[in-house]
Structure formats: C-alpha cells, structure tokens
Design a protein around this nucleic acid. Sequence first.
DNA 1: GTAAGATGTAGACAATGCTCACATTAGGCC
DNA 2: GGCCTAATGTGAGCATTGTCTACATCTTAC
Lengths: 192, 192
Amino acid sequence: MPKSGDSYHHGDLRAACLRAAIELLEENGSAGLSLRAVARRAGVSPTAPYRHYADRDALVSSVAAEGYRELAITLAAAHPSPSTPDDLAAVAAAYVRFALDHPAMFRAMFAEPCDPRSDERVAATAAITGYVTTLVRHAFPAVDDPAALSTAVWALVHGLAFLHLDGKLDSSTPDVVAEHVHAAVQALLSVS
Amino acid sequence: MPKSGDSYHHGDLRAACLRAAIELLEENGSAGLSLRAVARRAGVSPTAPYRHYADRDALVSSVAAEGYRELAITLAAAHPSPSTPDDLAAVAAAYVRFALDHPAMFRAMFAEPCDPRSDERVAATAAITGYVTTLVRHAFPAVDDPAALSTAVWALVHGLAFLHLDGKLDSSTPDVVAEHVHAAVQALLSVS
DNA sequence: GTAAGATGTAGACAATGCTCACATTAGGCC
DNA sequence: GGCCTAATGTGAGCATTGTCTACATCTTAC
C-alpha cells in the first residue's frame, strides 16, 4: 500500500515519473524534460528514475505512448462513429487541435527519431492506423484502394497538424484552424 | 585573404561551422550536434562559434534555412515546370525522398519549435509556400479554392514525409516509397 | 522471521551550453 | 608606413545533465 508520507519507497514512482515528465514537457518543451528534473518533481533522488526507465529515450517513448492513447481518446470523442466526409473533417480538426494543445507531446510522439524496438510505441501507432482505416472505409465504402486512401487521409491530417504546429499556417484561434482544416479537406476531396 | 594554414583567424568560421553542423547532424542526428563538436570539427576553440551564432538554436536555425534552400533545389530538379497531376506526384516523391535522405536536417527544418523571429527561416519557408502554390495553380487551373488546395497538397506531401520518416509506413526501398506516394496522391485525387 | 530481490540514495565522471576576461589580428585613418 | 579600434579567436570556469557504480532500505515470498 502506498502510504502517503515520507517513506523510503515512493509507492508508484514509475507513474509519478511519467506524470512529471508530461508536465515538464508541457511547461518547458522538450528542453525542459530532463531525468533529473523529473526526479526533483517526484521528490526523489536524481538517479531513482533509472530503476524504471533505462535512459532518457525510454522515458520519452513512454510519454509518446501515453500521448497516442490520449490522442485516440480525443479522436473518438470528436465523433463517436464517423461515417461521412463531414464527420471525417471533424475528426481531422480534433487531430490538429490535439497537436496545438499538446505541442511538445505531439513532437515527442512523431518528431523524434523513433525507436522501432519500443513495443509500447509500435502497438500504440498500430491502434491509430487501424482507427483511421476503419474510419475511411466507412466514409468512402466504394473507393478503389482503401488502404492507399487511408494513408493519404492520415498524411493529409498529419501534415496539417505539423504545418500549423510550425507556424506555417495561421493558427491564431481554434475557429480559424478548424476552418482551415475543413477547407483543405474539402478542397482535396472536390478535385475531379 | 583566408590563408590556409595555422593562422589565428580562421578565415570563414561562420561557413565552416554551418558545414560542420550539417555533417554532424547527418552523421549522428540531433543529439550529435553540439556547439563544442562543431568547434572541434572546425579546428577551433570550444567557444569560438559563439562569435557567429548566439546559441545552439541559432545554429540549428541556420541549418534549417540551408535545408530549405536545398529542398527547393531538389524539388525544382525533380521536375522543371510541373503542370499535370502526374508531375505533381513526381515532385511529391522528391519531397519525401529528401526527408528520407536527410532525416536529421528535415527534422531540424520542421520538427523543432520554430523561432518566428528568425527572418532567415521565415523567408525560406515563404519560398516553398510560393513554389507549391504556383505548382498547384498550374496543375489544377480550374479549381475553386486554389489557396486551400495548395495547403492541402503541401500538407498531404508533408504528412507522407513524416510518416515515412517515423517508420509508420514502409520505406524499405526508394521504389516502394515512390509507389506509396503515387498511390496516396492518386487515391485522394480520384475520390469523387 | 528471514533472505532475496526490488527500490531508492550517494557520489562521481565526462560532456555540454554559456559567460567573462583576455589575446591576436585585420582594416581604416593619418 | 604606422597606429587604433573593432572583429575574431582563446582559456578558464560554472551550472546542469546523462549515466555508472557502490551502497542503503524496504517488501515480500518462503
């Protein structure tokens, strides 16, 4: 039982580190995320986290995995069972919004050299791939190459997220962003 | 005149630092790029680069700007004056290939928090935006909202590049990648 | 109740970003 | 030609970080 107090053992340091890492990431970006800072925030010695994470990269990978889970929840919340192109646009807007709301986490998820060995990461991305695929199949049941279209749709949305994140597109207000996403999706889908 | 030899002054340390930074980035990724390593490679004291770059971020920004220039050249080389959807797909494939050939540089260009104050960066990205816009206008002269379509096309290609870069899509051989890009572009453009 | 394993601590080392005081040199001005 | 100023490079040094090793403390299975 994790008695709250000043016992030698923390109780659940692994989870505490993950939480602290996410907080630090959102507060100060990737540069603010150090194992020592995590340890400080968890109220523990500088090397204690090494009992739970092999190195800094392992911690970041865990943060990324947590991010994938939260992204999946966010997308599902945007529309319970999307089946029309309009639904799809709503989900796309939620995806971009997630990136803008959690920039550092989103970068940890996608912008850092990914370790293919991390099972946690691989499984989490597979879940997203599956989600997008079924979504596209529902929205476009009669399409020729559903796999290719799924890839294309994910890439489109993913690219929009990154361009907004990097300030390449106007992201001043949520409405502007949503508008932008809808327009882009609309524009692509309406080309003969 | 920059006498090659062991003179106190380097001659063109700024350019040498940039070159060294790019080399280090391609060799060891972002983690391998330190100001001290750059100094070592340039054969100069550890703090000399600070005369030319305010801090590490400034150096990275310069690398990114150089990357934008090289990307523009690569795209132009892929097709001198693209005007059909097929030409566009060829340019898209070149874009993705650039990302895979220079992963660390590509990340420096797009995946790091961008400093909006860096004029060099802003100007370079504006050039790419313009390039994509004119390209799309040529390929789809009769479209409703050319601006939105340009954004969408850039986002699509950009997203494909990142997904390949992060190992979310099969990138085993250049041919596979090109095939993938063509299929994705084709799939999106053929949806009614 | 005790021994083994899990968990946290203490100390240390090398590398890095960055600052400051100082050395050296180039280029304009007489 | 000769000097003065500013640009450029050096050196020492500080705080922080990642990570390793040896050690302390607690939990738990027997």
